[in-house]
Design a protein around this nucleic acid. Structure first.
Length: 304
RNA sequence: GGUUCCGUAGCUCAGUUGGUAGAGCAGUGGACUGAAAAUCCACGUGUCGUUGGUUCAAUUCCGACCGGAACCA
């Protein structure tokens, strides 16, 4: 099995800095596991590492889509796996770094995504006339197993499951074909920090983004893109909050407060995901020895 | 100085015709297989400002006091 290093953790713990160190030490190339950094022009708010700070280490899956494009797990899985193959063939070590747990798990595990021609945004319109209860009732007939696993209020998931039925493969059938195992020899490093400290870090980072010109970045994007806030890419925290500002419903200070709040809530959700969905080796960044420990553990694993 | 109003969960407030109270937000935990920085679920004991009084019983009624707001001087 190919070896892959994975660096995860909540937003603002310092994944990027660690990824550079690991890449330099192990001759690695970095694959971004991030659903927002794939978009060009989303720089400050997505906490993208500027080219001049990449220290000549190859970074992949950053700036690969236009702002108005859509992107999803299946895209990521395919592109990420191709890169792992290429990087390994070069004799380098693939290092996946990012906060999008779902993407990373789909690449690492034997998730199956059948070929589908989907326009996700368009799908919803086809179901617009149905209430959540009606959607759930339909799914109960078409794929009862899945219907039992999706909460009746989770409209987005209900529609996706119904779309899968329409595309000719029930979700439950596809899942049954999988062993739910990792297909790589992956070592997962999780960076952590006590909650209070992390939240302060998040607040500070948002302030830094503002100092770096986040507001101006959004202003320019909006100038060039009339329908900006309808783009999938604009779901990103640090961006979507500005819609209220441009609608005259929020002051700049209110927007900043929302960005901080959403970032904290996101970090909490990331912990839930990583703790329960992936076999993570956690390292507390307040531990003076954490870098040494990571280096030791990684070296041992690398030479296995 | 006077009058009126307010003081209930971390925040904003509701409520109890007297039987010790509940929403939203925040927070915490959880789910997650093609929007995932998305979507969804669960979790609400707090000296009901303080202190006297009336009462079987007061957060609820009455008095005083403290804090805040508005208006009148």
């Amino acid at each position: 099995m190919k070896k892959v290093v994975v660096i995860i953790g909540p937003t603002a713990v310092g994944k990027t800095a660690l990824s550079l160190a690991v890449a330099e030490h192990f001759k690695g190339e970095i694959i971004s596991g991030d659903s927002i950094q794939v978009y060009r022009e989303l720089n400050i708010g997505s906490a993208k590492l500027p080219l001049e700070e990449q220290r000549n280490i190859p970074h992949h899956l950053i700036d690969i889509r236009n702002l108005d494009a859509s992107y999803n797990v299946a895209d990521f899985q395919k592109e990420c796996r191709l890169l792992i193959t290429d990087i390994t063939a070069k004799g380098h070590l693939p290092i996946i770094t990012g906060g999008t747990g779902f993407y990373i798990k789909a690449a690492l595990f034997d998730y199956i995504f059948e070929d589908e021609d989907i326009e996700t945004a368009a799908d919803q319109t086809g179901w617009a006339d149905f209430t959540n209860e009606e959607l759930h009732a339909r799914l109960m007939e078409a794929d009862p197993l899945t219907a039992g696993q999706i909460h009746p209020h989770n409209r987005k998931r209900l529609i996706r499951a119904l779309e899968m039925v329409r595309a000719g493969h029930q979700r439950s059938t596809v899942l049954a074909q999988q062993k739910h195992e990792m297909i790589y020899d992956a070592y997962l490093i999780g960076l952590t920090l006590n909650r209070e400290e992390l939240y302060q870090r998040i607040d500070r980072r948002v302030d830094q983004m503002m100092d770096s010109g986040l507001q101006e970045e959004v202003r320019q994007l909006r100038e060039k893109n009339p329908g900006l806030f309808d783009y999938q890419s604009m779901q990103g925290i640090g961006y979507r909050e500005w819609q209220a500002y441009y609608n005259g419903q929020a002051s700049v200070d209110a927007v900043i407060a929302e960005i901080k709040k959403h970032s904290r809530q996101f970090a909490k959700r990331q912990y839930t995901w990583f703790n329960n969905q992936l076999p993570v080796n956690w390292y507390d960044i307040e531990d003076d020895m954490y870098l040494v420990k990571i280096n030791n553990d990684l070296t041992r694993w690398f030479n296995e």
